[in-house]
Design a binder for these strands. Sequence first.
DNA 1: TATTTACCCTATAAAAAACATAGGGAATAT
DNA 2: ATATTCCCTATGTTTTTTATAGGGTAAATA
Lengths: 138, 138
Amino acid sequence: MLSKKTKYALHALTYLGKHRENKTVLIQDIAEEHGISHKFLENILLELRKAGYLGSKKGKGGGYYLIKEPKDIPLSRVIRLLDGPIALLPCVSLNYYEPCAECKDESHCGINKVMAQVRDETLKILENKTLQDILEGE
Amino acid sequence: MLSKKTKYALHALTYLGKHRENKTVLIQDIAEEHGISHKFLENILLELRKAGYLGSKKGKGGGYYLIKEPKDIPLSRVIRLLDGPIALLPCVSLNYYEPCAECKDESHCGINKVMAQVRDETLKILENKTLQDILEGE
DNA sequence: TATTTACCCTATAAAAAACATAGGGAATAT
DNA sequence: ATATTCCCTATGTTTTTTATAGGGTAAATA
């Protein structure tokens, strides 16, 4: 399951995607819309900004805004950013690889091989679904 | 990512799948083979037995053994049993459904719709990969 | 039938991760 | 100047995961 962090990030991106004509959106507005803690959401938006999905403006009239096209924001990226690996095991993670302690020989591990296939197929799904798909479903 | 519980369960099932000619296998043997805590593994095997994947025999000469065909043990089942939902959000889980607190109207939520699609496609993958596939990769 | 073996079951504790809050700092509009 | 709003780091709380403990029960064997 996704963490609340990732779930809230998706809600925030969706909200920002729906308000692209406005210049900026306040953290507070998104937080209130979904009943999320302001401060918790703030940390999430910060991460999204650092990752290049959002822009921000300080001071009165400031706020956040989307700087990427919704079609260029795949679920895979958002999940990786906030939740970490998409692979089901560390030993098959492309971005967060770690060997499994209980596995003596990765190259002869059937679990490893199958999980690598699962990873590839799962990635295909999550790379093809984007914020755009979410917005179209609203 | 899968919990260690699920990962160990897969190792145990694999071990039992590779030793089907022997009548039974000791918890201890599996635990030692993979450097897993005996007691932790015991709880996992217990769950697998209750779920109908394993049989057991008490007393001297006892132990565990596989009672299903490897091809009839899909990853989806093992994951659901030990880790819970396969869906990425509670609001699209088939077996562990819960509404999302921050979502006012599920039927008009784009995240919900996309995640339901992701769930369906992910399930296809995990239902088609079985213990048999793991055994063939060893 | 006594003894040993090995699974059965529940409870509890330790560690890690997730979730949330706090509070002052820096930039900007008015 | 001042109010507004994001920026950033640190810390606390809760939940989940991981692991351990210890006695109970059934079966084989002698």
